[in-house]
Design a protein around this nucleic acid. Structure first.
Lengths: 381, 381
DNA sequence: TTTAGCACTAAATATTAGAGAGTGCTAAAA
DNA sequence: TTTTAGCACTCTCTAATATTTAGTGCTAAA
């Protein structure tokens, strides 16, 4: 109940809508690691904002001036803190659920924290890294099992919900294909692309063909089409005679193109239970919303291609939907790409309340994406 | 809040623990379709029980004598109904949340309803069947995409949460294998079993081998091991010379055995949001429990192999955990097997509150399992 | 055997009072 | 000029109490 206001950011935050973008730009201009100069907040205000957020992340209750002074033994009184808080509120970094309550961070506050105040997220502890690696390398797994595991581990490590998208392959090239007779007029195309993806496709035959016929065809196609992507293949077969080899080649092309294009990223999810035990989800209606969003929401599906195309940034943090994804108000999403630049790419992400441990989430997705990239790399030749 | 008592079945239901089993036996003995004779409930009582349950399933609120008489224009007064209800309660089929409330069905009541009172669930309407078929046959899909779709459709059709397990294959037989060089000392085994399952397995090589070497080996293995299951293969290779073919054969055997055995059924889930909008989940704590159970609970994983081994029954209904699955108190599960007897088998199921439309759930899993069985059958040769 | 009538019970809802938490402001102190 | 003690003020939270409502079980008559 304390957090109702998170959903409807109060006046002050709205009054300066241009601010977050500007801040973000500042960060990019300043050298990383150096403390950026800020015109509007002095050191003490920044420090207090940091403390308010840290405290709120842990307690989930509005943070009072008194409490913060006592807990951190600040060298000034609660009255001073109140004055500074008033200024922080005026600038939209924190808000009050009601007059006589403490302060809670606004989305803008979180943004500022993530970009400028947070202790830079380091790596996961060696112990955690080791535990995770152990799980990954323990058994030989298929790709989808890796991804499922990745989602599970990410959720567990970040203490939030996690999502992992299947990697999308651009420009698949044929490594090997095999045709298998299923019935007289039904064949199975098995197609291995150079990045190790396997695609099977059942296909009807115009005329009955034996396994021997099919083997002959597949041998020919293997020789002629190997290492090509579907566009190259299409050029190549243009002047072929109109025989069964060509018909089959066309089907292979279609399958390969399908692999490239229609490839709707499947999304593995896990850890929903983690975030629902957070106090912000004591309201059942919010729980339903969140489940809708995570289970099959548009927002998630919309974000992913965006992250994939966004080649620059290593980790992307979307706070409270950032005014773009309405379903995600009150949720934050931390996303990292994995894969091989320009060839294979997927997304690993953490979803949780805006009040999340951003540092931990960032470390987690960084590490897991690193791990997945390694695995993908191993799978290729 | 009305339904608190569902979780802790009150006295009467406990007093006659042998009853449900006995009933179930009776049903099996009696000819299907014929109205079974019952010593303890007269026609009017049965009719009233049916009405109470039907009403409760729709309204989710305790059913009062007055309401039921008015709504169904019963030819007797509410006082009479009250008398009969008292008897139904004494026998444990219904309970009162508190003294001055209406009646709600107990698990025992639901059981009785499902086995003896329910209008026998027919098929889904032709329109629904058509819609579903349309979704299934619209595009060529891979197995896991079929299953994902099946979960989604089941959830949507049953208005509850759905789960679909990956089919487990007993006794896989090799249809075709291919070895692909990935790096000098790293190869990919691609293995197609006769039922159309494809398994890929990366393997390290003792000594560098070219693609040509690997092709030679795979040709030999294809000829010698085709159509065998892993046990047969092991016999077969017993007296082979200890060369690279044999080493590879052993790896193929291991992979095939893995396919048969370790094959932990993956479970596709969908429609969690459906059941959480039900009024029984207005209590956040219950929501959390349910999500735990459905997302990664033991109960589900325990039930599935049980259903698979239970070859007789077409559809299995577990009500409120049936005193065996504690996590499932207040939930019911409707399960059907799909696949081909003795060869491939998976499970499709509906999970919802005990107050669910059993008829619809049963029709849905029946139809979907039928459809999946067909698809599996098509995939084989 | 059925039913009208009614006392009784327990929950749900509304009302009120009081306590608690934390602020903003003022005026004095540093 | 900045900081801080003091205090009035605001709003929520909790508990206690009364009121309403729904629906029963029982009795006695039909």
């Amino acid at each position: 109940m304390d957090n109702n206001e998170l959903e409807n950011p109060p006046g002050p935050a709205r009054r300066s809508p241009g601010r977050p973008r500007k801040k973000s730009t500042n960060l990019e201009e300043s050298t990383e690691g150096q403390k950026p100069v800020d015109e509007s907040l002095n050191d003490r205000q920044r420090e207090l904002l940091r403390l308010v957020i840290q405290e709120f992340v842990v307690t989930a209750a509005p943070v009072s001036s008194e409490a913060i002074v006592a807990k951190y033994r600040l060298p000034y009184s609660s009255a001073t803190v109140r004055n500074e808080m008033a200024e922080l509120e005026r600038q939209g970094y924190i808000t009050q659920p009601h007059t006589s309550a403490g302060r809670i961070p606004s989305d803008l506050g979180y943004r500022y924290y993530v970009e400028r105040l947070m202790v830079r997220p380091g790596n996961l502890s060696p112990l955690e890294q080791h535990t995770i690696q152990h799980q990954f390398y323990q058994i030989q797994l298929e790709l989808n099992e890796w991804l499922r595991l990745a989602a599970s581990v990410t959720a567990h490590t970040s203490h939030n919900a996690a999502l992992v998208s299947t990697p999308r392959v651009y420009d698949s090239r044929l490594k090997y294909l095999q045709l298998l007779s299923v019935q007289e007029r039904l064949a199975l195309i098995v197609l291995v692309s150079r990045d190790g993806t396997i695609r099977e496709q059942m296909t009807a035959l115009d005329q009955p063909q034996s396994q021997d016929d099919l083997t002959t065809i597949s041998n020919r196609l293997n020789t002629l089409l190997k290492d090509f992507n579907w566009k190259k293949m299409e050029e190549r077969i243009k002047d072929w005679p109109d025989d069964s080899s060509r018909t089959m080649a066309q089907k292979v092309i279609d399958t390969l193109r399908l692999l490239d294009q229609s490839q709707a990223a499947q999304i593995y999810r896990d850890g929903l239970a983690n975030i629902l035990s957070q106090p912000e989800f004591s309201d059942i209606e919010r729980v339903r919303q969140v489940i809708q969003v995570i289970e099959n929401g548009q927002a998630i599906t919309n974000i992913i291609p965006e992250v994939l195309s966004n080649e620059g940034q290593a980790v992307q943090v979307i706070i409270g939907g950032d005014n773009r994804f309405d379903d995600l108000r009150s949720l934050s999403v931390v996303l990292a790409r994995y894969g091989i630049d320009g060839q294979v790419a997927g997304v690993v992400g953490v979803v949780g309340p805006t009040r999340m441990e951003y540092g931990r989430s960032i470390s987690t997705v960084q590490y897991i994406s690193h791990l997945l990239s390694g695995l993908i790399n191993d799978r290729r030749g």
